[in-house]
Amino acid sequence: MKPQSSAHLSQEALNDLLIGLGSSASQAHLEQCASCREQVESFRCGMDAFNSASLAWSEAGAGKSLPRRSQARHAFFAPLAWTLATATLLLIGIPTWRHEHRAPQSLVAAQRVAPQSESSGVSDAEIAEDNDLLRAVDAALRTDQPSPLRNQRPRESHTHRKVRLESRSL
């Protein structure tokens, strides 16, 4: 009886089978020998796993390379983008800064103007004068002296009478 190891396919025969150059005798042995079949299957399963994983990894790498290209494009446009951003910042920032630093001056100016307008426009003397005038007018209106025209009926003119007659006839 042959030893167990010699009953199996040699390494060269197994490799030939894997390469696709196996003899028909080797192929026949493989169909009957579970141990040799396991050797072949183990390699094929390992290669299947390796191929699928490495391809998936490469595809992921291929996906990463697109951003790389866009990164290159980004690198090209980056200085332009930064320049535009800086210009925008300056355009907005400088007027804002100036406005903010001018604001207290305007307030000071306004504060300077405000007392003048208050003192000239709403002085107590003028208010007193106005009140005196209003009181005088009021007193004049309350007087009992009748007006010369109070009891005198106005005379109707010819034109007024004519208009009244015409309106009646309608």
Partner: peptide
């Protein structure tokens, strides 16, 4: 499978 992939690599 991962071990096999590593070994082959």
């Amino acid at each position: 499978a991962r071990e096999q992939v590593k070994h082959i690599a």
